[in-house]
Amino acid sequence: MFEIYGERFASRLLLGTAQYPSPATLKEAVEASSAEIVTVSLRRESARMRAGQGFWELIEELGVSVLPNTAGCHTAKEAVATAEMARELFDTPWIKLEVIANDDTLQPDLFGLVEAATILVADGFKVLPYTTEDLSAAEKLASAGCTVLMPWASPIGSARGLINRDGLKTLRAYFPDKTLIIDAGIGAVASGRGDGARL
């Protein structure tokens, strides 16, 4: 079983909801994957377009757990405000915390990440921080109260797979009881799953 803050799931797969050709394809993908958790985001809503309202109805229809993220945030302050908005919108204390250092690599800003995680945990959030394999950052996130870590495999969208396998193994050795979710750059799902299983 796979556990996130005391909740258990039969599937270890978390499915993103972006870049599907249509809502119907997204729905079919979620159902076919048996994923029990999907990641979602927030965007500015246009009074004319109302794009978010239809998406929300689709998510409710799917009946899966949602993991909102703070994508696009570059400071701890922005990430905290976004997390608070996400908690109200999605009615969940879970937040995939992203604080991005720069727009080229989408590398996590580990300093801002720890700052935001500390604030959010104190406010009752269940934080899933998008981090690197850096052990010192992981220790600080753990001290802040994160029981789940989301280290990257490689930069988002690069599909390079696990570029620092030793670093991820070290994280696992230091945190044998924490849920580690390898989050970015995995590439093909099959290879990512296989690599993850060997850590």
């Binding site: 997204l26 809503e45 109302r50």
Partner: peptide
Amino acid sequence: ASAQRALTPLAPKDEIEIVAPRQGG
């Protein structure tokens, strides 16, 4: 929070964000 919107006054040059659920990863 939504319950606080009626109690939140606006002032010139305020920067308002209005966001909604959206696809993401």
